[in-house]
């Protein structure tokens, strides 16, 4: 079997003295779409943010396409900042608060990484940006600034910004939680399209129905551990653990 594109091994993380991740193992193959669900404080967002080194971890390994992320060797020595930056470009992240660069147009938000990180020439970067902005349905808004766009539009630009970098894994951190209800669907349908085309995705989400529809696998986290993992039909219809059953009931799925 081919090597998993994302491998998380025995991940431990502490915030001051509190351990928030207590030994997490997870593997994704190319094209897998995995949703992480759980209550706040379960560690799901922290896990996601470790993958692109926005959070540090003190024990365990994360490998993307076989390459160790953030730290090297058995002594868990931290890599250099420039090396970490390069590795971050292997993943794409979409944030709950969009985090678009307000002083740049939608187009420029997308081309910044292409020109400065991937060092592509301007016309190539612009072509890629235009393609992806068209794919998320915002071709005619590419010269608009974030302040001129709605929440749903901003999040779609954020998705284009991340995907245009051609990452090996896409990370979605509760990307619809900050949106007004009527804007949620436009974002979810973009994510659905990406999944159908074979993008490897790790999503932290509250949208249970969406997780059920789009995922190959669902992971339920509780208190820093993975409590249950499996195909959506199993997890949502026949939960094995009691806490998962309670969680699903309170989420009204």
């Amino acid at each position: 079997m081919a090597q998993p594109i994302l491998q998380i091994e025995n991940l431990h993380k502490k915030f001051k003295d509190i351990e928030v991740l207590k030994g997490v193992d997870l593997a994704l193959d190319t094209g897998d779409v995995v949703s992480i669900i759980g209550s706040s404080g379960s560690g799901k967002t922290t896990l996601l943010r470790c993958v692109n080194m926005l959070e540090e971890f003190h024990q365990g390994r994360i490998l993307i396409d076989g390459e160790e992320i953030g730290y090297s060797g058995p002594q868990h020595k931290a890599k250099r900042e420039s090396e970490i930056a390069r590795q971050r470009a292997m993943t794409g992240m979409v944030f709950q608060q969009f985090n678009l660069f307000p002083h740049m147009t939608a187009q420029r938000n997308v081309t910044l990484g292409l020109t400065k990180v991937k060092k592509l020439p301007a016309d190539e970067a612009n072509a890629i940006a235009e393609k992806w902005l068209a794919r998320v349905g915002l071709k005619d808004r590419r010269d608009h600034y974030p302040g001129q766009l709605s929440g749903g539009q901003q999040q779609r630009v954020a998705i284009a910004r991340a995907v245009a970098m051609n990452p090996k894994v896409m990370l979605f951190d509760e990307v619809t939680s900050a949106l007004d209800p009527e804007l949620v669907n436009e974002v979810l349908s973009v994510i659905q399209d990406l999944a159908t085309e074979g993008m490897t995705m790790l999503l932290v989400t509250h949208e249970m129905k969406f997780a059920f529809e789009v995922s190959d696998r669902v992971v339920f986290m509780n208190q820093g551990r993975i409590e249950e993992e499996g195909p959506p039909e199993e997890l949502f219809r026949k939960p094995k653990s009691q806490r998962l059953a309670e969680f699903l009931k309170s989420s009204k799925f």
Partner: peptide, 25 residues
Amino acid sequence: PRGQTEAAKAIGLTFPQLFVYVLAP
């Protein structure tokens, strides 16, 4: 907002780059 630094890091910008293109302006 911290999210600006994080978003810039997430696309792989180094600190000098993200300071010049994202924070300083």
